[in-house]
Design a protein around this nucleic acid. Structure first.
Lengths: 335, 335
DNA sequence: ATGAAAGCGCTAACAG
DNA sequence: CTGTTAGCGCTTTCAT
């Protein structure tokens, strides 16, 4: 049924040698390795990760904590992490805080901090004092992807800058009446991202000498429906903007749909730009500032894996690259 | 640093008692439990899942295998599974076959079958002889969610029936020129779902005495872009359908966008219905046949957890419920 | 290049 | 209600 032991007796070798052969450590005769190999899968040997983990203290597993999972960005990051982990023979344990029905604390203590993972990736999460302390107590390497997180190194784009660029792009096109569909605190994400992007927008406006219209910064909740509803409301306001900068592509799509529903055209009547590089962008013709979450995830996984293997910890990351993708959703303001 | 042992000496109890107290087994004096508890977190005790796993043979983990992750359905199912698992104190290991860069076999042997999970959920996957054999060799309970999978019990909607109903709905509205945007074999999914849905469509047409137009069953690849492109092509054909039944909501959205881009209206010029119950549906006004993947995932998790706990295995599942959601994307054919 | 022996940290009978 | 005694299956010095 199970066991390195069986292989040992079947081959007439010792457990140690079999163990070494199976992990192809040096100093095992090639012939021996062969024999062990053959016997192993002849017996249908399946290693016990628990036993190996107990013995080595390593679980060959990294945890990924997401605030919610049904968001384009998180999913792509997950893909990037997964691919890299898989390549290294590591498994990925997913912790979805949203699934915990508000019981974030329990997930934290009972699951995440359990000695089950060798490293941890936190997605767009900000932590309170207590949580941060807990995290620091953990021995393993960790990092945040997505938003800056006070006290923890983080990997991601420069949110403020990209928002500034996006707004500036609209400004340069001639727009002066620019709205920003952003978010507040994402469901449990407690992330700094929405704020950073809003600031970037505000700063670009300020640098252009334009006073922001308070009603023009609705909360799109970082969802398609939220973007749509925000735009619909904007369209009914006493004065309507000629351009919209959405803090995420999904919200931008929602806004575009709302604009079209209202019988207006993009970009002739209203221009729209987003941030992300969502797959739907091409079809929607959305002009956007694309980031590469898959690469970010892969990068994170590589760094973590390296550190688990003993490499010195990287204290911080340079900002992840952003690519401007010009399509057809933005143009000069009407008339 | 670690260990139940430390707590034992610190409290003057034995390892066993501490172990019992920590897991609140019966037959431990309440006072003892208290004492152990306090000492445990005073010492910052973190249990070793590897040790527990080795001792019990249980890992408190279930694996979920997805063909690709960036699909609405899989993500929702994942949420359902995760929530239920979390509640039971189980962890979820994610296996993304797409991430394996075609190396499906390796993921299979090196990871999935490793003795690391207590149960397995397979999403919309069909297996070849060899894989099925391997799966049967595993001791733990498993099931497929999504598509029927020969040889393995499966939980999901009745794909043929829902497709039949969707087509019938269009037929009853008076349409006779109905196209079907479906899929072939999803990227590595190797699923039976697309075929079943196509059959349902064909059968409904046949029952209505309508001969299908071969060109009207394009492959939308189950993606938004695929749905869009398929529809765009349909629109350029020598003859254009008055209604489209998309095998998934995402493809339906793509089709709607293509229709609008062509200057046509939904449903006045062309009706569209989908399958799924995607969150975007409300905004798009899509009439669809909604399923509840979160519930399916939760159900699966509950069943598996029960079986891990010793309950007898459920041999099969009744089809998951489908709810007809009538919105505004379908109406009678023009003129 | 291979073997022997001692654990890794916890659970599970079996006593008491 | 609590303690003792064995392991779970693998890795890892230390010998040989």
């Amino acid at each position: 049924m199970s066991g390195i032991q069986e292989i040992a007796v079947a081959t007439g070798l010792s457990k140690s040698t079999v163990s070494r052969a199976l992990r192809d450590l040096p100093s095992v005769a090639p012939a021996t390795v062969m024999a062990v190999r053959r016997m192993a899968d002849q017996l249908g040997y399946i290693p016990s990760s628990a036993a190996a983990g107990l013995a080595t203290g390593r679980n060959r597993t990294v945890g990924v904590v997401v605030p919610v999972i049904d968001r384009w960005f998180y999913i792509r990051v997950l893909e990037g992490i997964d691919a890299e982990l898989r390549r290294a023979g590591y498994d990925l344990i997913l912790f979805n805080l949203a699934g915990a029905a508000g019981d974030r604390g329990r997930v934290f203590h009972r699951s995440i901090l359990r000695k089950r993972v060798d490293a941890l990736v936190l997605l767009s999460l900000v932590f309170d004092e207590d949580e941060r302390e807990q995290l620091e107590l953990t021995e393993y390497p960790l990092l945040v992807i997505g938003g800056p997180a006070p006290g923890i190194r983080h990997l991601g784009i420069d949110d403020h800058q990209v928002a500034y660029r996006a707004t500036k792009y609209l400004l340069d096109l001639g727009h002066t009446r620019i709205a920003h569909i952003g978010g507040r605190d994402e469901a449990g994400a407690n992330s700094l991202v929405p704020g950073e992007r809003h600031e970037g927008y505000l700063d670009a406006l300020a640098d252009a000498g334009i006073a922001p219209v308070p009603e023009w910064s609705p909360n799109g909740e970082f969802t398609f429906a939220g973007g749509h509803d925000s735009m619909a409301r904007l369209l009914q306001g006493p004065s309507v903007p000629t351009a919209v900068f959405a803090a995420s592509d999904e919200m931008a799509f929602g806004a575009m749909v709302a604009i079209q529903k209202a019988g207006l055209r993009v970009p002739e009547d209203i221009s729209v730009v987003g941030i992300d590089g969502h797959a739907y962008g091409k079809t929607f013709g959305l002009t956007t500032f694309a980031q590469d979450p898959v690469a970010q995830g892969a990068r994170a996984a590589r760094v973590l894996l390296g550190e688990v293997a003993g490499q010195p910890a990287l204290p911080w990351f340079e900002p992840a690259p952003v690519t401007f993708v010009e399509r057809t959703s933005a143009g000069p303001p009407p008339n």
